[in-house]
């Protein structure tokens, strides 16, 4: 009974496999979300629906501060990463120069280096080489974490933008120049509209990467610069409480929402909507 690729979904081994994927991939997430509504201090037995843990969560000043820190760090590092990553991609695309391959490799390095190594590296750097002053006013106290986040997320932005640039038709730039446009005008009128899907995707990528980064942040954060994932980790160290479940649920929903937004924007013709 030969059939198209979709027909395989009707065969029982394939169905079993799909079921296993569903259970092990989404089961934990769903149960975590479910227990965040459980009316019990213990997380094992279901005792009815409640929003108490969310109320507690929003009354927890430390947690809210951590959440605010995370959003601030994510927003600032995304902005800088977008600028830096796009500029890097344009530089590597537009010019031919000595050591270009080496620089292209260096830009991609943060993507392949294990996060724990980057984390330790930043720990050493910000304690021994360039100690970040403590007691600074918000948001400057977050500077070290923001720099660390930029250093890895700009690589992703550069990667996405470079991929999009590879498909750029040079004759469009020639045509604009022929019609009187200067380099800056070509960048604004022709190149950036072409890049807009990559800029949106890269920006959302950088934002979510920063928002849920734990390892690197853990090594660079000080006592007054706790982020949301680090705070959740601290809570879990004592016990997995329903508050943790509630906090995690919020984080999951936020990241999933952003990812969905990125997919949707990439699906449509963004260059068109953007103008």
């Amino acid at each position: 009974m030969a059939g198209g690729p979709l027909d395989y979904g009707h065969r029982w081994p394939m169905r079993l496999w799909l079921a296993a994927v569903g259970v092990f991939l989404y089961g934990p997430l769903l149960s975590l979300m479910a227990f965040s509504f459980n009316n019990s201090r213990r997380t094992i037995v279901w005792r009815g629906f409640t929003l108490d843990w969310y109320r507690k969560l929003f009354a927890d000043a430390d947690l809210l501060t951590a959440f605010g820190n995370s959003l601030t760090i994510a927003a600032l590092s995304t902005l800088v990463s977008l600028g830096l990553g796009t500029a890097t991609a344009l530089l590597l695309w537009r010019f031919r120069f000595e050591g270009q391959t080496a620089i292209a490799g260096l830009v991609a390095l943060p993507i392949v280096v294990p996060e724990i190594c980057l984390g330790v590296a930043f720990l050493v750097f910000f304690s021994a080489v360039l100690p970040w002053p403590t007691g600074l006013a918000w948001p400057f106290n977050l500077g070290a974490i923001i720099i660390a986040h930029i250093s890895f997320s700009f690589s992703f932005v550069a990667l996405v933008v470079r991929a999009r640039l590879a498909g750029f038709d040079h004759s469009l730039a020639d045509a604009a120049r022929d019609l009187g446009a200067s380099d800056g005008t070509i960048l604004r009128d022709i190149l950036l509209p072409h890049l807009s899907p990559a800029l949106i995707a890269g920006g959302l990528l950088a934002f979510t990467l920063s928002l849920d980064d734990f390892v690197i942040t853990f090594f660079t954060s000080g006592p007054d610069t706790i982020t949301f994932p680090v705070k959740v980790y601290a809570m879990v160290r004592f016990s997995v409480t329903p508050e943790v479940n509630a906090a995690s649920t919020l984080l999951i929903l936020l990241t999933a929402g952003l990812a969905a937004l990125a997919l949707r924007l990439q699906g449509g013709d963004i260059g068109r909507e953007a103008l």
Binding site: D169, R177, P193
Partner: peptide, 21 residues
Amino acid sequence: VPANRRPVNMVFQGLALFPHM
């Protein structure tokens, strides 16, 4: 004299119409 200051204009081989306009 750069291309954007010359009194000539061009029809490109692939036409090079700006797709987002």
